[in-house]
Simulated assay, not measured.
Amino acid sequence: MASNQDLPEGTVQNILDQESLKWVFVGGKGGVGKTTCSSILSILLSRVRHSVLIISTDPAHNLSDAFQQRFTKTPTLVNGFTNLYAMEVDPNVENEEMLGSEGMDGFLSDLANAIPGIDEAMSFSEMLKLVQTMDYSVIVFDTAPTGHTLRLLQFPSTLEKGLAKMMTLRNKFGGMLSQMTHLFGVSDDFGEGAILGKLEGMKDVIERVNKQFKDPDLTTFVCVCIPEFLSLYETERLVQELTNFEIDTHNIIINQVLHDEEDAESKLLKARMRMQKKYIDQFYMLYDDFHITKLPLLPDEVCGVEALKSFSCNFLSPYESPIIRGKEEVLEQRVSTLREQLKDAEAELERQRKGKQKI
Results as ranks from 00 to 15, higher is better:
I226F: 02
M180R: 02
Q333Y: 12
L230E: 04
G174Y: 07
P75Q: 03
E88F: 05
L130D: 13
I226H: 02
N92F: 01
I40D: 02
S321N: 13
I139V: 15
R237Q: 14
V222A: 01
G174F: 06
I247E: 07
L316C: 04
P318V: 10
V12C: 04
Q282D: 09
E234W: 03
K327A: 12
G31L: 05
S3Y: 12
D6S: 12
P91Q: 07
K29S: 13
S123C: 14
V224H: 02
E192T: 04
T74C: 00
L150P: 12
D260L: 08
F124Y: 08
V24R: 01
P59S: 02
L238Y: 08
D248I: 00
E207R: 12
P59V: 08
E207D: 15
A194D: 05
T249R: 08
A66R: 01
M87I: 03
T11W: 10
K73A: 11
N244E: 10
L84S: 04
T158C: 08
A264W: 01
L177K: 14
I139F: 00
G197R: 10
L199N: 00
A345F: 09
G28T: 10
A86G: 15
K172M: 13
L269Q: 13
P296M: 05
F71C: 00
M87C: 12
L268C: 00
A144K: 05
K267I: 13
D217M: 12
K277V: 05
K327C: 02
Q333K: 14
L159K: 04
L159D: 03
M127D: 03
T74Q: 11
D17L: 10
K129W: 03
F107W: 06
K29T: 06
L111R: 00
I54A: 09
A66H: 02
N62M: 05
F221P: 04
G355A: 15
F124C: 08
A164G: 05
C313H: 06
R325N: 06
V222S: 04
L108R: 03
N210D: 15
L163F: 09
M285F: 11
L338F: 13
P145V: 14
E9I: 04
T181M: 15
D217H: 11
V335E: 06
F155D: 01
V302H: 09
T82H: 14
L269D: 08
M134P: 00
G117W: 09
K211A: 12
Q132M: 14
K165R: 15
E160M: 07
T181E: 10
F184K: 06
F290Q: 09
K214G: 01
M98A: 11
D300W: 03
R353K: 15
D110W: 10
L16I: 03
I115K: 03
